[in-house]
Structure formats: C-alpha cells, structure tokens
Amino acid sequence: MTEQLLEIKNLYVGYKTYRGTSKVLNGVHLSVNTGEKVGLIGESGCGKTTTMKTILRILPANAVIQNGEIYFRGKDIQRMGKNELNELRRTYIAMIFQDPTAALNPVFKIETQLADVIKSSHAHESRTEELNAKCIRLLKEVALPDPERVLDSYPFQLSGGMRQRVCIAMALATPRYLLIADEPTTNLDVTIQDQVLHLIKDIVEKRKLSVILISHALGTVRGFVDKVCAMYAGEIFEVAETEKLFSDPLHPYTKGLLESTPRLTGGFSEGIGGRVPDYINPPLGCRFHPRCNYSLSICKKEKPPFIDIEGNHSVACWLYNKK
C-alpha cells in the first residue's frame, strides 16, 4: 500500500508574459502513495492548479518548466513521448475540473461526450449497445437519477450538480490510478457540495484510487483526505496528516488560514493581511515574509528548507529550524 505513485521533486514552472517571466512554482515537492488521499490547500493564485496541469502536461503554451522532475510510477513524465503522454492522460490519471460548465462541450449531448471518453481508452467496447450500457452504468455509479434522460441531454439542460457528476463519470470511465480533483465543488451549493464530496469519496475508496483534492476551502479537505499539503506562492509550506494539521498547525501561513475560516460554533479572526505576491518580482527568501507576523531577518534573505518536525509532519519555516 505504501508504494509511491507520484513524486514531484523541486519543480519550478514559470509563465512567459510581456512583463517578464512570472515565476509561479518555486520548488514544489509532493508525493502521493498508492491509495492515498492528499489534499492541497492554499489561496487562489498560489499555484495549485499549475502544479496539477504540469503533472498532466496540459500547461498553456507560454508556460516553461524550468527545473524539476515528476515521476509517475517510476517514469519521468517529462521524458515521455506523445503516445506515452496520451496513454497517461486517458488511462492512468484523471482530472475533474472546477467548473463543469466549462469542462463539458455545450454543443454535444452527454451521450456523445461520455462515449468518446470510453472509446478513446483501451478497454473500449465496440458495439453501440455495450457502449450505451456502459454509459448508463457509469451514470448510475455517480448516483444520477434517470440516466437515460441525462444521456440524451445537452449540458445546459442539467443542473450544476448533475454536470459535475457527469464529469466525475467521465473521469472514472476508464480504470485509473490517480484522480486529480481541482476544486470540484467550489461552484456548487453547500448541500450539493456535500453530496458530490461524499460521492467522490465513496467511489475512490471502492476503487482504491489515489486522489489529489485541491481546494481553498479547508473544511472540504478535512473530511476527505489522509494528508494535507499547504501551499503558498508556488511552494509547499507544510505537510502533515489531516488531523495533525488541523489540530496543530506549525507554519504561520497555515495558522492564519485556519484562523481566518469562520466557525459554526462562533469565533473569527482578522485574517492575513496583504495578498499573494507578484510572481514576476517575487519577494526574496521566504515568499511569505511580507505577510508574516513572525518574520525574522533571515526570512528576507534565504528560502527556508523543508524540515521534518516529527513523524510525517514537515514544515518550511525558519522559526522551526534549530540551526
């Protein structure tokens, strides 16, 4: 069970813009084991989606991978040829996007789109009836009522929750190893969000998939994953088991995020001042230091190394470096 499925080492990714290169990812380390559920949290614009797009090599044309390695089942993704990459995308890694409306093609019926996904995979059924039966089975798996009607609908005829379920069905159409869920419930209402999260969790556990769940809402991550990575401005600041991170956060950024979230039982803090830095001229040293209340002089000069505090809890912050 502890076999490593995905490993990202020291990843640097930038975007070329007319103002200069925007240095978004600044040495990301991330590892996912087989069957592990990993949460990636952070504010918008901190590079969560960029990291995921790098894994699938679906970055926009102006993006440059400056440094770093990504291994999926021991293979370097950057050395893969076109065929291997296609193989990776259609059979090994699936991604659910934030906005199901944008992820589905508005001019084709669900049936066409879902069947295309099945056909493109290796395990495809050639006969129409089989294909149709498989579509219906998939839609039933994501708990969509009346699958025949859904298949015969265009995306605009479905509600947001139903569209996201269709996207999940597509992602699970072929056997997978890793599911990347990029804010799958951000555009949904709370009650629907609850349903969709439970659905993803059930399917993932049933099929023993590994998952990376990206979210800026900490609560959604808490009930879902085994391990949480807190990300800020292109760096992973803290990695810990879910319970540990929520009960005993170490990094000032993680603490700030947790404190900013309003509680059902009451209680509310002031939040974190400032905002995610400009990536073209990012702050030197620790990228969080301009917003950090505890910053030391070294924070402005040197990037903090990632250190283990205790079993499986590591943090990148000078406050915890005994040097």
Binding site: T191, Q193, Q195, L197, L218, G219, R222, R263, L264
Partner: peptide, 21 residues
C-alpha cells in the same frame, strides 16, 4: 447546517445529524 464543511470536532458535534443532504 449538516452540509457545512467544518474544521474542528467541536463544530462537527454541533451539527444536526438526523438530516442528510
């Protein structure tokens, strides 16, 4: 209320349990 994702066990126990979304 029961659908709200929360951060602590204290909040978890404060949620009503008899209705599921």
């Amino acid at each position: 209320l029961s659908s709200v994702p929360v951060l602590t066990d204290e909040e978890e126990t404060s949620k009503p349990r008899d209705v599921k979304s």
